[in-house]
Amino acid sequence: MKEKSFIRKKELVKAALDEFTTNDYKNASLNSIIKNAGISKGTFYYHFQDKQSLYLFLLDTANKMKWEFMNSHIKEMSVDFNQKDIFEGFKIQAQIGIEFATLFPEYHQLSMMFAKERGNQIYENTMTILSVNTEDMMNEMVKKAIKRGDFNEKFSKDFIVRIMTFLFMGFHEIFGNKEDFELENMAKNLNNYVNFMKYGLGK
C-alpha cells in the first residue's frame, strides 16, 4: 500500500476484514468491500492494485501486529527462553497468541481463514510474496534447542525440523472444526499438541 493515507482507510480495512473472514479468498467480493467501505473504485485502485494486494496488506498487518504484541509481552514477562526448552517456549508463545486473538479477534479470524487456503494458489503466492518460510524459522529454533539438549539424540536435526514444521503447518487441518476455533478449546488443543511433540521427540 502507498504511504499516502486516505480518509476512509479505516472503513476499507474493516470492510475487507469482514469480507475475508466470512468468505474464502476465491469467494470474497472486492465489489462488496468497496461498497461497504463507502469509497469509489478509483480511490481503491489508487491505493491497491487488486484484491490480492489488499489481502496481502491485511495478512502482513496482522502478522506484524501479532509479533509486536508477542515481543512486547515477552519483554514484560522477562522470559529467558535460553533457560526453557523449546516446548515450554512454544507454550508461552501460544498463550500470548491467544491473548492477541482475544484482543484482536478480526485479525485472528483472518489468520484462521488463511490457514484454510493451504493448497490453493493464493496461499503459495502469499507465502512467497511475504517471504514466510516456516521451515527456515523452525531450523534456527531447532539448532538452538539441540544445543540445549531438548531433543532425543537419536533424531537428526533434519528429521526434527521436517516433523515439527509439518506439525505446525498441519495444526488447523487437525483442529478445523467450528468448536476448535473457540479460544478455550484452542488453548487446550495447543497445549496438548505441544505436549505431544515434546514427549514424542523430547528426552
Rank of each mutant, 00 (worst) to 15 (best):
M1V: 13
S5M: 07
I7Y: 05
R8F: 12
R8P: 03
K9F: 09
E11A: 12
K14P: 06
F20D: 03
T21M: 13
T21P: 04
N23R: 08
D24A: 14
K26C: 07
K26N: 09
N27F: 13
N27S: 09
A28T: 01
S29T: 05
N36R: 10
S40M: 11
K41L: 13
Y46C: 10
Y46H: 15
Q49I: 11
S53E: 04
L54G: 01
L56I: 07
W67N: 12
E68P: 02
E68K: 13
F69S: 01
M70Q: 15
M70V: 10
I74F: 08
V79W: 05
N82D: 11
K84L: 15
D85G: 07
D85P: 03
D85S: 08
D85L: 06
I86C: 04
K91T: 02
I92H: 05
Q93F: 03
Q93Y: 07
A94D: 04
Q95C: 08
I96K: 00
A101H: 00
H108N: 00
S111D: 03
M112F: 09
F114T: 01
A115V: 06
A115D: 02
K116L: 06
R118H: 12
R118S: 13
Y123I: 05
L130T: 05
M137R: 12
E140W: 10
K143F: 02
A145D: 03
G149I: 12
N152D: 15
K154V: 14
K154I: 08
K154C: 14
F155D: 01
K157N: 07
K157E: 08
I163H: 04
F168H: 14
G170N: 15
G170F: 14
E173F: 15
I174H: 05
F175M: 10
G176C: 13
E179L: 02
F181M: 09
N185W: 08
N185R: 06
M186L: 11
K188W: 11
Y199A: 12
G200K: 11
L201H: 07
